Computed example of a mutant assay.
Amino acid sequence: MTSEQPPPEPPADPLAQARMRMAHLPQMGSWVLWPAVMAVFVLALGFSAKFIPGYTPAELVVDQNISAHHDGFLNTVALALNTVFGPLGGVILVAVVCLFLLLVRRAPVNAIAFGAVAAVGWLSCQIFKVIVGRHRPDPALLANPLAPESASDSFPSGHVCLAVALAFALYYLAWGTGREKLAVVFGIFMVVVVGLSRLYIGVHYPTDVLASVIAASAAVLFFTGVWNRYAMAILARVRILQRFGPVPAPR
């Protein structure tokens, strides 16, 4: 068993407390074990999809059926999501939220926590992409490839990992406000829509999308334990943050 470090003492001022809501994130008990198990499962899923004969052709049928029934409005929505949750769009999206929390809400702890959770969950996909190296669906085999890609980085989906990471970050931001259920519903909706859009465009297989949810979740769940143990001790030493808002001292 590992001893849990107690969260920092909340300030007496309710406004200051709200600005430091993410100083201590909701954390599962086995924050090392279960993320490790989830990561192993993702790798097993990826290598199975890559090397088991007939696995990829069977999944390709899903992309082909969707590609043969594209709709003008859905094309626009899918391509918009492709841009918003893409590399550049994702950086801008996360940066805008963090700057809003920092400069408008005057909540440096929340801003850093939100950005860190989003970044860790999002970038976790790169580790599995490099290890597994699964090729994307061949656009030549699709009826209407909207954004043709042929690289060996199909598994898992970076777009879906970003959506999952943002869903966690929004939930943590809403924690203790009474809006947790709304954040959960919105987060699930966002992940499902982005996941379906990746299949709709034809740049990922269903297994890629499923693995993205598990991989990003594992990364975020592990990070919450690290954040709760060490973040406040580090942020307390960054004195410039106090110019933007309250930063609690570590216990």
Rank of each mutant, 00 (worst) to 15 (best):
S154W: 08
T2H: 14
I234R: 15
L210P: 02
L142I: 02
L210G: 13
F100W: 08
R105A: 09
S197T: 03
V209R: 03
A116I: 01
F47M: 06
L199K: 08
Y200N: 09
I92C: 04
F100H: 06
H24D: 10
R237W: 11
Y55I: 01
A249Y: 15
S152A: 07
A219F: 06
H69W: 06
P246E: 11
I127D: 14
D208A: 04
A174G: 10
M38C: 15
S197L: 08
M22R: 01
L182G: 14
S3V: 06
L142G: 07
W227T: 08
F128R: 00
V247A: 03
V61P: 12
L241I: 05
E9S: 02
L170T: 15
Y172H: 12
D63M: 11
L45W: 10
G187F: 03
L210Q: 01
P87K: 10
I214A: 11
F168L: 10
F244N: 07
T2I: 13
P246S: 10
R134A: 12
Y230G: 10
L146D: 01
R134Y: 01
I66K: 08
G225S: 11
L123Y: 13
A68C: 12
G245A: 12
P6N: 13
A183H: 03
A231F: 01
V84K: 07
G29T: 08
V192A: 14
G90R: 05
G46A: 04
L146W: 03
A111Q: 00
V97L: 06
L74I: 11
P148D: 10
P14L: 12
T177L: 06
G86V: 00
L196D: 03
P206D: 05
V32K: 07
A163I: 10
L162K: 04
L79Y: 00
Q64V: 07
N110R: 00
L81P: 03
V226K: 07
F223T: 02
F47Q: 03
G72P: 07
S48K: 14
R243P: 08
V104L: 06
L141M: 02
D71C: 05
P156W: 09
K181Q: 15
V213F: 05
Q17P: 14
W175A: 15
A231V: 05
M22C: 00
P87F: 04
L166S: 07
Q5V: 05
L43C: 11
M38P: 08
H24S: 10
L103G: 02
G46M: 13
P248Y: 11
V62Q: 12
V130L: 14
P87Q: 13
V96K: 05
V132T: 00
L221Q: 06
V160Q: 03
A165K: 01
L79H: 04
M190K: 15
G29N: 15
R237V: 06
V203P: 01
V238N: 14
I240H: 11
H204S: 02
R21C: 01
